[in-house]
Amino acid sequence: MQPGKLEAQLKTKAAEIGFAACGIARADAAPKTAERLRQWLAEGRHGSMIWMEERAHHRERPAGLWPEVRSVISLGMSYAPATDPLALANAGEIGRISVYAQGGDYHDVIKRRLKELARWLVGAAPGADVKVFVDTAPVMEKPLAEAAGLGWQGKHTNLVSREHGSWLFLGAIYTTLELAPDAAAPSTCGSCDACQTACPTNAFPAPYRLDARRCISYLTIEHKGPIPHEFREGIGNRIYGCDDCLAVCPWNKFAASARANLAFAPRAELTAPALADLLALDDAGFREVFAGSPIKRIGRDRMVRNCLIAAGNSGSAALLGPVRALLDDPDDAVRDAAAWAIARLPAG
């Protein structure tokens, strides 16, 4: 096969399958990743995400996870929103869900497409071995995507693409093939600090550094138990994740929602859910509402805890009844959040 022909065919096939971006990096193309990861962990900025520590040796470099890997195929699938993610910032009785979680579970969608592309690659290059990863494995998707030319890690540490802005789900295919790598993407953040200044909880101690313990996405999704009081007001009406640092990035003006994969189209009931309805959910109701959504993994108790924080920030006396009903909830964090919310709400 002519040099570069397989790589070109691979990218054409990736686009046919639904990937908006595809690039190739050598398996050893992000040498500073291990050093940055070790420093981040040593500073405790991963919070309670213990799996980051336990599998750090796998995460530091691709060969740490699979010694035979020679190339990494980095892929991105767009979920660019059609509406402003910040539009409901002042809608106190509405819960805000991060754009990525308003549609189908990206893990399922992307893994199917990755497997399809991997099967094609093995067919095109007999003898090649491959492994596919999307989010749940100890893979540093963002540095690898940067090395593969998909974009660069912005000051908020998320990937930014010239074409797709901040709205890319990332996946990776590790392969034993020696593929021609793409040029790494240069950073073009310049002096812009919009993402840092937009953060309601000051989760960025410095450019390109994130303290997960202060991040609303971490607090509402990964953090178990009561949310520290110092962050509760800053959470506002966000009940699952946070898009603020992404939404304000100037590069998003180039991210057309028409390029977004239809599998991630938002479900109507998740675009502007009423807090009163969510506060009334029991376990069965939670599973029914969030079936097929990445939200389902946090469980009913954590979601209701988040909704109580949002209710406490709402200033709405209409939410007093639903909040009071949770003062005797079996879950400690839910009871704690209910008491906090009642202390903040007007008597009505």
Rank of each mutant, 00 (worst) to 15 (best):
G241C: 08
R238Q: 11
R213T: 15
P228T: 07
G236R: 01
H223E: 09
S217P: 15
D244I: 08
R213A: 09
R214Y: 14
D243Q: 13
C245W: 12
R213G: 15
G225V: 10
E222T: 10
I239N: 03
R214N: 11
C215G: 06
G225R: 11
D244S: 14
G236K: 01
I221D: 03
T220A: 04
F231S: 07
K224H: 15
Y240V: 05
V248K: 01
S217Y: 11
Y240Q: 01
N237M: 07
G225A: 06
I227Y: 11
P228M: 14
R214E: 04
H229Q: 13
H223A: 05
L210Y: 00
C249S: 07
K253Q: 13
L219A: 13
F231P: 07
L210A: 03
G234R: 05
S217H: 12
R214T: 05
Y218N: 01
R213Q: 15
E230Y: 03
G236P: 04
L246Y: 04
A212M: 11
C242M: 11
H229Y: 09
R232D: 10
G225Y: 15
E233N: 06
I216S: 09
W251Y: 13
I227A: 12
R213E: 10
D211P: 04
H223G: 05
Y240K: 02
E230S: 02
N252Y: 04
G236A: 00
N252L: 04
T220Y: 09
Y240A: 02
E233P: 01
D243T: 12
S217W: 11
P250W: 03
C249P: 00
E222N: 11
D244H: 02
